[in-house]
């Protein structure tokens, strides 16, 4: 099954376009220098996996990207726009092009699945026609993750894997060009993890998105990654595809693949 999945690779355009670019990103909390000049380039249609130990600053990096954390210095360009120079409205508009799958799914507890999915839509209606029929959108997104029957359930009634899928559906509903995955398989059992990874691949194929995946799950990385970056000591320590990194002689890199 896994082998099958790994065979599905995105089609690259003849001309490789950088959709997301991070240069020399620095961020510290107090005396703790978390990111110390991190660089990254995400090409269109690519699945880029970033691996690192917990506490290595993966989440910080991805949150800087989406504006949840303000970096100390460095440049972040998303689709050609430098995010630090944008005002709130512009940034919100740009953010609607970026999907973010949170580590713990982060479904809104007080809302039903339907309301959860409608939530991003209400603020980005300008992207669609005015009297948008949200139901169609919601149902489409739910069908994509195979959970249409759960439309009127509350998040507390869902299992962990279902939550993750609903969260994915919520991310997809705005049809983003870039999806950022923060630990998409954390807290899930191996079988559910595989299902989620499969789903991620399907979505990628269907929506032709570019993905930035943060994980410490080697299996996940192996299946999904076109390219990998290891984040060690606050910098992009090493870059390459799964096989090259696995066969690396560097001790720090080897530690990941044991």
């Amino acid at each position: 099954m896994l082998e099958e999945i790994s065979n599905i690779t995105p089609k690259f355009n003849s001309e490789i376009k950088t959709i997301l670019e991070i240069k020399n990103l620095k961020k510290s909390f107090g005396n703790n220098q978390v990111l110390n000049g991190f660089n990254l380039e995400l090409n269109e249609g690519e699945n880029l996996v970033i691996m690192g130990k917990s506490g290595s600053g993966k989440s910080v990096m991805i949150k800087c990207l989406i504006g949840l954390i303000e970096p100390d210095s460095g440049s972040i360009r998303v689709m050609g726009q430098e995010i630090t120079t944008l005002n709130q409205t512009q940034f919100d508009k740009l953010r609607s092009e970026i999907g973010f799958l949170f580590q713990g799914s982060a479904l809104y507890d007080s809302m039903t699945v339907r309301e959860n999915l409608e939530f991003p839509l209400r603020h980005h209606k300008e992207r669609f026609e005015k009297n948008l029929d949200t139901t169609a959108f919601v149902e489409e997104a739910l069908t994509n993750v195979g959970l249409l029957h759960a439309i009127d359930l509350m998040p507390s009634e869902l299992s962990g894997g279902m939550k993750r899928r609903i969260a994915l559906a919520r991310t997809l509903i705005l049809k983003p060009k870039i999806i950022l995955y923060d630990e998409p398989t954390s807290g899930l059992d191996p079988i559910t993890s595989k299902e989620i990874i499969q789903l991620m691949k399907n979505i990628q194929k269907q929506y032709k998105t570019s993905s930035l995946i943060i994980t410490h799950d080697v299996d996940c990385a192996r299946v999904i990654a076109n390219r990998m970056i290891l984040l060690i000591d606050g910098i992009n320590y090493v870059e390459g595809n799964y096989d090259t990194l696995k066969n690396s002689s560097d001790e720090k890199v080897k530690a990941f693949f044991k």
Binding site: K63, I66, G67, L68, Q88, D92, K93, R95, S96, I98, F100, F102, Q103, G104, S105, A106, L107, Y108, D109, F119, P120, R122, H123, H124, R170, L174
Partner: peptide, 13 residues
């Protein structure tokens, strides 16, 4: 549970 972050990301203040 990062719901506040999720809200921010989805364009809602």
């Amino acid at each position: 549970t990062e719901q506040i972050d999720a809200m921010e990301v989805s364009g809602t203040n």
